[in-house]
């Protein structure tokens, strides 16, 4: 039995349509017009304990609806969901006691108070025995280097410091599942690394299941063995990061720097996707034309200063998947 089981999840929202103008507003008071928006359209997946899953998709794809259902604060229209043997929205209190949720955009700490007071209160809210709370707090303080921050009012923390404190706050009750929503948004490079390292260690050493929603593919590549890709309420891909990369990297790109800016580059097996001064970028499929052949052909025809071959960034491939799904 997997830890998280989702089958045929459907959720439709009714969105009130607003009419323009005073007359429209008055009309709206009497009879409202609604538009139906299907946020989740039969989503299924299962997650085993101890996995780190990246959950990605464009804005409005259905990510946050899924996370809300899994965390018990949204009731779906249809479908079966079981998390650690429970139906989240039927036993909200019992369910949320076993999960942790971090929103990158919003803190759950008390704004005007020192961090440690938030920890104390959270310990009481989650019914964590005092000794237990102190032990975990000490451990998290050490791991996340919070020592100097504990007595600082939250409003005085930098974004990166606040995120580390928020991570600690959501782990005081030792949840077995952690939902991270955009945990690195707005952070500087070193703060991002600190968050990623911590999450990785947490997963490896404690076996905490992590579900990560983000737009930052670096987060996904650094952390996730598995990616789920959703758009318009449907699952587009669900598999290992390597498989997604493989699929996306059927294409390769060749970048050449020409001696002469005026030269037109053309080849039957490659297409020019960008041209910027001396630099020309070509895409080709290595299964149709071996890389060595292509390079040899182009080098024979043009005077080159430099060239290199690379994988297109995974973002480009994902953006293409979205486009194809919508077409």
């Amino acid at each position: 039995m997997p830890q998280i089981l989702v089958e045929g999840l459907v959720k439709t929202y009714r969105v009130a349509e607003r009419r323009p103008g005073v007359w429209g507003a008055l009309h709206g008071l009497v009879r409202r017009a609604y538009r139906e928006v299907r946020a989740l359209d039969g989503v299924s997946f299962s997650i085993e304990a101890g996995e780190i899953v990246g959950y990605i998709g464009p804005n409005g794809a259905g990510k946050s609806s899924t996370v809300k259902v899994l965390s018990g604060i949204l009731t779906p229209d249809a479908g079966r969901v079981e998390v650690a043997g429970r139906v989240p929205w039927l036993e909200r209190a019992a369910h949320v006691a076993g999960i942790g949720v971090v929103f990158g955009q919003r803190t759950q700490l008390w704004w005007d108070l020192p961090v440690v007071e938030s920890f104390e209160l959270l310990g009481a809210i989650y019914r964590v025995p005092e000794a237990e709370r102190l032990r975990r707090q000490a451990e998290l303080t050490e791991r996340l280097e919070l020592g100097a921050l504990l007595d600082t009012p939250v409003r005085q923390l930098s974004l990166g410091q606040r995120m580390r404190c928020d991570l600690a706050a959501s782990l005081l009750h030792a949840p077995s599942i952690l939902f991270l929503d955009e945990p690195t948004i707005g952070l500087d490079a070193s703060a991002k690394l600190a968050v990623r390292d911590f999450v990785k260690r947490l997963n490896r050493e404690r076996g905490v299941t992590v579900i990560l929603t983000t737009h930052d593919m670096d987060d996904i590549e650094a952390l996730c063995s598995r990616v789920m890709l959703i758009d318009r309420g449907r699952m587009l891909r669900d598999g290992s990061m390597a498989a997604l990369r493989e699929e996306g990297q059927g294409e390769r790109r060749l970048v050449v720097d020409l001696e002469d800016e005026q030269t037109e580059v053309a080849d039957a097996d490659a297409r020019v996707v960008a041209r910027d001064g001396h630099r020309v970028t070509l895409h080709y499929d290595p299964r149709r034309v071996p890389t060595a052949h292509l390079i040899a052909r182009i080098a024979a025809r043009h005077a080159l200063r430099d060239l290199f071959v690379e994988h297109p960034p995974i973002e480009e491939w994902i953006a293409r998947l979205y486009r194809e799904a919508r077409a």
Partner: peptide, 13 residues
């Protein structure tokens, strides 16, 4: 402001 979600995420009434 979405703060009510946070309330629902805690194991109390």
């Amino acid at each position: 402001g979405g703060g009510f979600d946070r309330i629902l995420l805690r194991p109390r009434g």
